[in-house]
Design a protein around this nucleic acid. Structure first.
Lengths: 150, 150
DNA sequence: CTGCATCCTCCAAGATACTG
DNA sequence: CAGTATCTTGGAGGATGCAG
């Protein structure tokens, strides 16, 4: 479990390098934000699924609803982190191919745990939500008599 | 790998129930957004680490920088999804205890994959970023002669 | 075709004040 | 103590126009 890791390696004061620890933590959170943002995971999926180079337009077609601004931005981030490669063919009109790097593929696999969790617990979560909503929706002011301690 | 799952179960037209499939996909993305948001994972960590009930104030103390508004909201979402339990003691002043449910614990464990990925690839990612930034920062207009196809 | 620049809108979330 | 209510703001992200 990651808390064990966190407690053992990051929060224990016995460990010397404090700066890199917070950096690690920040990076974890950053990567979570990345894959959670609207498009990153979809791009990775498409590239992994294609298992081949895809052009900018091909990607935009396979990812419904993405604007080129967001697609560009997403791809730049992925490229910057070394998760995709960007090959520009110097021709006119331009021709740009994107591929997943091994590191990018490994990230896709790492997300699998959450995917499986959602697959396994999805229905229960939805049931909990309905129950919660029913419980709270028709909740009257709830004359909950509190016992004063004074 | 999750793309296999996605291709096999969600995108194949042979599978009949389209509505629940998109719901599944949406739920995956939703859970990713949740755990990626600024506070959810921190709350889960603290509750898991404490392995006991924590009061609202205790949580806010252990999570530096969180406003009560955000903490409240986060806890409500977690409660709605059945990931934490909220026990209100009807006394004055109020006393509210929060605990992780088994489902909540399982989510924490599911995140482990990404945690480990970040631990393993963190340094490489940072190195890629620096390389990328150096490459692009001092990039001149790059008189890249493109060969016209016309 | 690919992608940058600009404008504009909208809402998440912080700050602050108040309450049972 | 554990919240709600209200106000405000930064920035994410869509739409559009332009460029190599």
């Amino acid at each position: 479990m990651f808390y064990t890791y966190r407690m053992g390696t990051i929060e224990k004061p016995t460990h010397s390098s404090t700066a890199s620890d917070t950096a690690q933590q920040a990076l974890v959170h950053e990567m979570l934000e990345r894959i959670a943002d609207k498009w990153t995971l979809l791009v990775i999926e498409e590239l992994a699924q294609a298992a081949a180079e895809l052009r900018f337009t091909q990607l935009s077609q396979r990812i419904p609803g993405v604007s080129q601004k967001m697609l560009t931005k997403t791809l730049r981030q992925l490229e910057r982190d070394g998760l995709v490669t960007r090959r520009v063919h110097p021709v006119i009109p331009p021709h740009v191919d994107y591929t997943l790097t091994p590191r990018g593929e490994s990230l896709g696999e790492a997300v699998c745990g959450i995917w499986l969790w959602a697959e396994k617990h999805g229905k229960q979560v939805l049931r909990s939500r309905h129950a919660y909503d029913n419980r709270t929706r028709m909740q009257p002011p709830a004359s909950s008599r509190a016992s004063y301690t004074s």
